[in-house]
Design a protein around this nucleic acid. Structure first.
Length: 483
RNA sequence: UCCUCAGUAGCUCAGUUGGUUAGAGCAUCUGACUGUUAAUCAGAGGGUCACUGGUUCAAGUCCAGUCUGAGGAGCCA
């Protein structure tokens, strides 16, 4: 019977009245042969367990090492020491699992994030990663709550897909054919995928959007929240080969409705984490402030983590069109001083340096950029009517966040069959393979819109972690698939 | 994939213009102490200087290649 234990989070909130309590957890540090800092993951705060002299024999005392798991029964009393209000006076202590102090990699000291990335199987046991993953959980939970209360249907779109028309990046191939050169061939020497498991060439999904649109054409509003795979050789602090994405898709929404939903959504989940993970966020804020002390003045954040999140909650996102964004860049001191590496003119895709300037220097808050040139955006985005000759735009919207860059990419979808077919032709997408998708425009098409939010980027934004590999349990990146 | 930087003890790092036996703090182990807060004090052990090759009387240090990591860029969420 193990479930009579009290979780440390609950215990720390109790009034001490010499009540008998059983706790279980892992030793963070054992001081003075007398004070155990015990953590069970329910909170970042450790419980101080006091082991009085003579309670345990020397052999047992020696087994209380960093990382060991313990079951302790004792009395909850007001603490005599300064660092905590309550502590557990042990009456009995059982070592559930030993932890060889010489072999256990985590020491009661500060470790680098790079080192902990290599010990990802143990890093949940540190303060920083404990906080990050509790916040990650809260954000995930809040996402379901937000959409559920709005009547959205959670749709599980497929992980394996035969569609390669999304154009959202390089894909991972899924096959059961042998890789030793003996796979069946066509007459022209190419691989014969008719012999493969699904009878065609298949991949891991890069987006659930197209399937999501099918759902929206029946339920009115759906969202997906699942893993997404991109085989890009990206080595950055904001890319993963396997990441989680939230993709709401709404019938009877235009681009304006889409932006309103995205902004409300982001604020809701941040608010949820602020309300439910205050301790964790305060710890992370402190960690970040400590980290930034080492940076030169101009590289430090103007606001602390909590202040940044509060600022986002209390201010409307800036909304500008792509054309306005270009004008701002062209009139910026940075442009006039030739600080930009890449050319700025109408028609370019905004580079990281441009997005950063808009978000971090000019507006200093999240910015929604809309109405991008049609030439640089996906085929399914709705063509805007009445555009100037040579300046055709689409009803796209990207939300740019300080420090992260693009956190949301979305659009109103092209619901007019003729326009969609024309765009697919321009993008060399074979309409025959997309017949199922085109049926939504043939049978009861409606104005609709949606967006994709990169979950890990959102977790980065809320926790202040600068490397995306530190906000997912076991990161998959080029040349790295441990655990 | 491109650019830049880095790889020395379990961890974080120092190591001079190439020159004897490669150092520190923390961790670990042993002992002391016992109301500590990353406890403290004393002592001890711990190294294929990423790997391969080259230059040299002599390489942790110089050169070339490879691998790994970090930051930035591109691709994007």
């Amino acid at each position: 019977m193990f479930n009579n234990r009290t979780r440390i989070k609950a215990l720390l909130a109790m009034e001490p009245a010499n009540q008998e309590i059983t706790v279980m957890g892992w030793v963070r540090t054992f001081r003075n042969n007398q004070f155990i800092a015990l953590n069970d993951g329910s909170t970042n705060n450790n419980l101080q367990v006091v082991v009085e002299l003579g309670l345990l024999d020397d052999a047992t005392l020696k087994r209380i090492t960093t990382g060991a798991s313990l079951k302790i029964t004792g009395e909850l009393v007001a603490s005599l020491g300064k660092g905590q209000t309550v502590e557990l006076k042990a009456k009995s202590l059982e070592v559930l699992g030993d932890s060889d102090a010489e072999a256990y990699p985590l020491q009661p000291k500060k470790h680098s994030l790079e080192f902990l990335r290599e010990k990802a199987h143990l890093r949940f046991r540190t303060n920083t990663f404990g906080a990050v993953f509790r916040v990650r959980h809260s954000l995930a939970f809040a996402i379901h709550q937000f959409f559920h209360q709005k009547g959205f249907v959670y749709l599980h779109t497929p992980i394996i897909t035969a569609s390669d028309a999304e154009g959202a990046g390089e894909m991972f191939r899924v096959t059961t054919l042998p890789m030793d050169g003996t796979a069946p061939r066509n007459e022209d020497g190419s691989i014969n995928y008719k012999e493969d498991f699904f009878g065609k060439s298949t991949n891991l999904t890069v987006s659930g959007q197209l399937e999501g649109e099918l759902g929206a054409m029946a339920f009115s509003e759906i969202y997906t929240f699942g893993p997404t795979f991109r085989a890009e050789n990206s080595n950055t602090t904001r890319h993963l080969a396997e990441f989680w994405m939230i993709e709401p898709e709404m019938a009877f929404y235009d681009i304006e409705d889409n932006m309103n939903l995205a902004e409300e959504f982001i604020k809701f989940i941040i608010r949820f984490a602020m309300d439910h993970n205050r301790d964790d966020l305060e710890f992370l804020a402190q960690r970040l402030a400590e980290e930034e002390k080492a940076l030169p003045q101009d590289k430090r954040s103007e606001l602390g983590l909590i202040e940044k999140l509060e600022f986002v909650l209390n201010n409307a996102f800036e909304r500008i069109t792509y054309t306005e964004a270009i004008d701002i860049l062209l009139n910026s001191p940075a442009y006039k001083k030739k600080k930009f590496q890449y050319e700025v003119k109408w028609g370019i895709d905004l580079q990281s340096e441009h997005e950063r300037y808009l978000v971090e220097k000019h507006f200093k808050k999240p910015v929604i950029v809309t109405n991008y040139p049609a030439a640089i955006k996906a085929f399914y985005m709705r063509l805007n009517d009445g555009c100037e000759e040579g300046k055709q735009t689409v009803a796209a919207m990207d939300i740019l966040a300080p420090g992260i860059g693009e956190i949301v990419g979305g659009s109103q979808r092209e619901e007019r069959l003729e326009n969609l077919l024309k765009r697919m032709e321009e993008f060399h997408i074979p309409a025959a393979e997309m017949d199922w998708y085109l049926d939504t425009r043939r049978f009861g098409t409606v104005p609709h819109a949606g967006f994709g939010l990169g979950f890990e980027r959102m977790v980065q934004f809320v926790t202040g972690m600068t490397n995306i590999r530190d906000v997912i349990a076991f990161a998959r990146t080029p040349k790295n698939c441990e655990f």
